[in-house]
Design a protein around this nucleic acid. Sequence first.
DNA 1: AGGCAGCGCAC
DNA 2: GTGCGC
DNA 3: GCCT
Length: 601
Amino acid sequence: MAPTFPPIYLLKWNLEHDPKELHRLEEEIDVVFDIKEAKLVLGKVKLKRRAALELRKLGLDTEEVVTTESEPDTDTDHNHHEEQIASQIVPSAPGNPPAQRLAISPRSTLRPSDETIKVLDLAWYTGSLNAGKLLPIEDYLVYEGRIKSKILPVKPKQTLLPAQVEPRRQISTVSPTQRHFRTGPRKFGGNSVHSSSQPARLLHKTTSEDEAYAALPPIPKYLHSPYSCQRPTPLHCPNEDFLSELRIIKQARNLKGDEVGVRAYSVAVAAIASYPYSLTSALELSRLPGCGSKISKLWQDWKTLGHVEEADEARSDPDLQVLDLFWKIHGVGEASARDFFSKGWRSLDDIVEQGWDRISRDQQIGVKYYDEFLQRIPREEVEKIASVILDYANHIRDGFRMVICGGYRRGKPDSGDVDVVLSHPNENATHRFLVELLESLERDEYITHRLIVSMKNSDRGQNPLNWKGSMPRSRGGFDSLDHAFLVWQEPTWPSKDEDLKGNPDARNPNVHRRVDIIISPWKTAGCAVLGWSGGTMFERDLRHYCKQQLGFKFDSTGVRRQDNGEWVDLEKGDGDLLVKERRVFSGLGLEWRDPTERCTD
DNA sequence: AGGCAGCGCAC
DNA sequence: GTGCGC
DNA sequence: GCCT
């Protein structure tokens, strides 16, 4: 006789890429869909940390219960939730084997703080089925957590079923003559709990639409995620020509002030950029996250007509060309570009002649070095600049570590600016350091302008305690990082001495470059590196993922809880900056992505 | 039918 | 508060 | 514009 199971909540994690199996299990096990009704949580999880993360996603903030004897109840935290997951597993129906003492430690006092939630390996379920009775849970217990607090509403969203993609209206599907094959075997997660009792059923009646779907190359599993931070997005992809069109439309929308459009096109670009096959049909495209009917229509036009109308219009619109020219001035965004345009200005000369005093200092610098800032920086020069910075840093205080981030780290052959993150294992070394570094670089004439210097972290001039009001969230730590955005120019050139002899005001011919220097406290340096390395969408989605899925707030200064702002340390332990960055990935429940796989733009 | 990242700076 | 860059 |  099959045993009767207590109410079970099934974690979708690691099952979500196999929706059929997930559905089978959900039906076979009589799962509850609200974790609060469950006595037990099952999942294909092996790691405590992962289990805790998954619970957090569901709105349960837990701390591990060490399964030795009952911990001393020093727990004064009072989380008075009346109904909660009981500490004991009480089968919900009669007829279960009486001998199963499922609770680990006998607890007579049912104080709320004793409430724990247990996460078991799915194998417990299959094993129990096979045995015809409920097995002891000890061998299968992955994680036992005491509920610290219920988090606000953290949505259990993201179901990720490819089959739920709604069939689009007939877009004459170019028959996929060219079949694609995945590069590797499908991974179901090896140890999957195959089918003991229930034979696989047909989930769908086969309509022609379904057949069209079935004929498509399978979507790589990572593309089931709507978060680009969960996908490898290489610098180059098979659909770059189409992407170029989308990027043109996106920029046109940007110049027109259509923020939402920009967002939508950015999402679509990021998804297509991570798709490893050459697209063969609009239907195929419409399966990707962020790619709906509009994007599919654009692809169809592009494929059949050879061009995309909106992109053509953008290219040939002279007003847009002017807006774009202005927009490329450092310090000029979409709003200022249109503002300039509305003043009747049509060229950089117009700005200089008619508006020089009315534009900001940043914009003046942007105009002055317009051509130079648009020149790409070869990797070699990026490295040169970075090594100067590191040398100067170490000259002030030895032991600095540096990672060159930005496009360089993503593998681009050249960059628009230079981003370096510096840190030092000694916490004190980074404090108040940026000013010193800037002064020494200025002394040797590397820096021609400071665009911004932000020092929330360190002492800002006279007022050492000025920022303390904003510190309660980061206990015993720094709240932020120091950041300088500079105009950089190599001070020497081959014929310098000669030139100066002839003319004391001889011009330095080296190109002016924009350089970001970030000084991060060691304990959050992994976050800084991560936060400064990804493409725009990667970084956006990272923040979004943290908020939606984990209830965390991520930025380059660290990870904090959303509800109370408490700092979450994901970087504990030895290791260099890159190790710390990896810890952040795993602490956030994310698969490692090499920087070269964060090219979402 | 609401949300879309979220921060610090200049102005 | 808005605009900007990241 | 797409998602939930």
